[in-house]
Design a protein around this nucleic acid. Sequence first.
DNA 1: AACATGATGCTCT
DNA 2: GAGCATCATGTTA
Length: 233
Amino acid sequence: MSGTAGSLLPREFFDGPAPEIAPALLGCVLTHDSPDGTVAAMITEVEAYAGRGDPASHAYRGQTPRNAVMFGPPGHLYVYFTYGMHFCANLVCGSVSAVLLRAGRITEGASLAAARRWPQPAAGAGGRGHPERDLARGPARLCQALSIGRALDGADAVDPRSPLRVSAGSTYPGPAGPVRSGPRVGISQAVDVPWRFWLDGDDSVSPYRTFTPRRGRVKPVTGPGPGSGTMPG
DNA sequence: AACATGATGCTCT
DNA sequence: GAGCATCATGTTA
């Protein structure tokens, strides 16, 4: 694989299984040129969703209008709307797999990102505002900071003319620091597979939350949860 | 730190 | 109608 830091990733980078590609995306940079301006983020946390065989994947139940992009060529962005108010973004890989972008560190356009995340200035004249690490700490926050919405569903992230692109990090190929992995967040299926990957020690990584059914929507659940925590990468 | 819950609407059965 | 690949805020520690 060839490439230099700052250059667009080649499409072949994404033409493989998401669980193998996901950790390699850590440290890469996601850039969105919008009419408002440009915001870029270094990817610090991802999750892999394998193809039709992964019960936690949106592709598990086959193609629908919503997940159609997942069934297309690798290197495109799959954006979906969830919980009535949030967007989440994935990069499509080979064989109908995808990598969910869970968190990033803003490297360009931080003031624009902050204006999108926190339209009302932070309270407190003493000055303590919102910490920079919270700008894109979480999949929906990342989308909000970069203004990723439905309009970018299907965008080609390896096309230099695209408004939304992924480029190599400072140490391409491979992330700058050690990678850790653990169970995926917020899902009820396949909880045992450690397909969440993050840059060890980076404070822009989102906190781990176990899946908890919401009140009034109780489903019989027995047996132990995921082992917990992390495992070395 | 852990847990609980409201906000909000699309997607699939 | 049920179930979400969520977040922010509140409460209890």
